[in-house]
Amino acid sequence: MKVDIDEKEDRGNELIALARLVAFALETAKTLDAEVAEFCLDKALRAVLEQIDEPSRLTLTASDIMLMNRTPLC
């Protein structure tokens, strides 16, 4: 049972890290006016954020919450 809990925590932490990475890439694409990349990264970020489970959401920082509340491009 402990292994399952650890695996779920690891998955949540990895998804949060992935969301941060994609968010960084998205902000970089914005500064470069790379509209197609920006659109795709926005979609990717939303997809990753949807995969984060409720227990992992409790560990989100203020910056993470700001990511989740971004307005979509489309």
Rank of each mutant, 00 (worst) to 15 (best):
M1W: 09
M1H: 14
M1D: 07
K2N: 13
K2R: 12
V3Y: 05
D4T: 00
D4F: 01
I5L: 09
I5Y: 07
I5W: 02
I5C: 03
I5E: 10
D6I: 08
E7K: 15
E7L: 15
E7D: 14
K8C: 06
K8P: 00
E9P: 00
E9M: 05
D10R: 15
D10K: 15
D10L: 12
R11F: 05
G12S: 12
N13L: 00
N13K: 05
N13I: 00
N13F: 01
E14H: 14
L15S: 07
L15E: 05
L15I: 06
L15F: 01
I16Y: 10
I16P: 01
I16G: 01
A17L: 10
L18G: 01
A19V: 08
A19S: 14
R20E: 06
R20S: 05
L21C: 00
L21P: 01
L21W: 01
V22S: 05
V22C: 06
V22F: 09
A23C: 11
F24A: 09
A25Y: 09
L26K: 15
E27H: 08
E27R: 12
E27Q: 11
T28Y: 11
A29T: 05
A29F: 07
K30P: 00
T31M: 10
D33M: 02
A34E: 01
A34V: 00
A34G: 02
E35I: 00
E35C: 02
V36D: 11
V36F: 03
V36M: 07
V36A: 08
F39K: 04
C40I: 08
C40H: 04
L41M: 07
L41T: 07
D42Y: 03
D42N: 15
D42C: 13
D42G: 15
K43D: 11
A44S: 09
A44R: 12
A44V: 02
L45R: 02
L45G: 01
R46P: 02
R46S: 15
R46K: 13
A47S: 02
A47N: 01
V48H: 04
V48L: 03
V48I: 14
L49C: 04
L49G: 03
L49W: 13
L49K: 08
E50G: 04
Q51R: 15
Q51W: 06
I52S: 00
I52F: 04
E54P: 02
E54T: 04
P55E: 02
S56T: 12
S56I: 10
R57Y: 04
R57A: 08
R57V: 04
R57H: 06
R57C: 11
R57I: 06
L58W: 10
L58T: 14
T59C: 09
T59S: 14
T59D: 12
L60R: 13
L60Y: 08
L60T: 04
A62F: 13
A62C: 09
S63L: 12
S63R: 12
I65N: 03
I65P: 00
M66W: 05
L67G: 07
L67V: 03
M68G: 13
M68W: 04
M68I: 06
N69T: 13
N69Y: 09
R70V: 10
R70E: 12
R70Y: 08
R70P: 09
T71S: 10
T71G: 06
C74Y: 14
C74T: 11
